[in-house]
């Protein structure tokens, strides 16, 4: 039964994610994308007269149900298919850098508890990484018309050049931020 706890390699996970594109199309002509759920949540939950949120979000309820499925699936996997207190197999250079410079030494969770742990809610740094970072994700994906799923996976799978532009841009921006912005924010 040990195998059930082992992390999946990329060549299992990648194809499964790729198959989501045809699976959603064949299941009911749905175009795979996740950032659009954020817009549906705005349309459904925030009362406003903003024209951008005036549309039939109920027609897109499949998208919200898919996101709800992600929450459930992640709960199942984290609860029953993962051993607690086992370090994730990271590049030693990254570990060394994080522990030497930023006192991030716990590698047993998928996220650094020193930054995202609930016990650090009193720290500004935790709010910058979650609230501010999340704001950039929401603002940026809608401005760009999609995220990794809608642009990189669906857009590239259907040979759409605007998605290639988006993918190259957010990869470069991510590299820039990971090298220059994240280290600064970690040192706060």
């Amino acid at each position: 039964m040990e195998w059930i706890y082992a992390p999946w390699p990329w060549y299992i996970a990648g194809p499964l994610i790729g198959l989501t594109v045809p699976a959603l199309y064949l299941a009911g002509n749905k175009s795979f994308g996740i950032s659009s759920t954020l817009r549906h949540l705005c349309a459904a939950c925030i009362p406003s007269k903003v024209p951008f949120f005036q549309y039939d979000w109920k027609k897109e309820s499949w998208n919200l149900l898919f996101a709800a499925g992600i929450v459930i699936g992640a709960f199942i996997a984290a609860t029953w298919f993962r051993l607690p207190d086992v370090e994730i197999q990271l590049n030693p250079e990254l570990k060394q850098n994080l522990s030497a410079n930023y006192e991030i030494t716990n590698f047993t969770a998928l996220l650094p508890v020193e930054v995202f742990g609930i016990q650090h809610l009193g720290e500004l740094r935790t709010w910058i990484f979650s609230l501010f970072g999340g704001f950039l994700v929401g603002f940026g994906t809608r401005y760009a018309g999609g995220c990794t799923s809608g642009h990189a996976i669906t857009g590239l799978s259907t040979l759409q050049w605007p998605s290639l532009v988006a993918t190259i841009t957010f990869m470069i921006a991510g590299i820039f931020a990971s090298w220059l912005i994240v280290p600064f924010l970690l040192s706060l």
Binding site: F135, L136, R142, Y143, A144, C147, T169, I175, A177, I181
Partner: peptide
């Protein structure tokens, strides 16, 4: 497509 992706890339690296 470009400007939004820059914001998103920053947010992706941070979160």
């Amino acid at each position: 497509t470009v400007i939004g992706s820059i914001f998103f890339g920053f947010g992706w690296a941070i979160t």
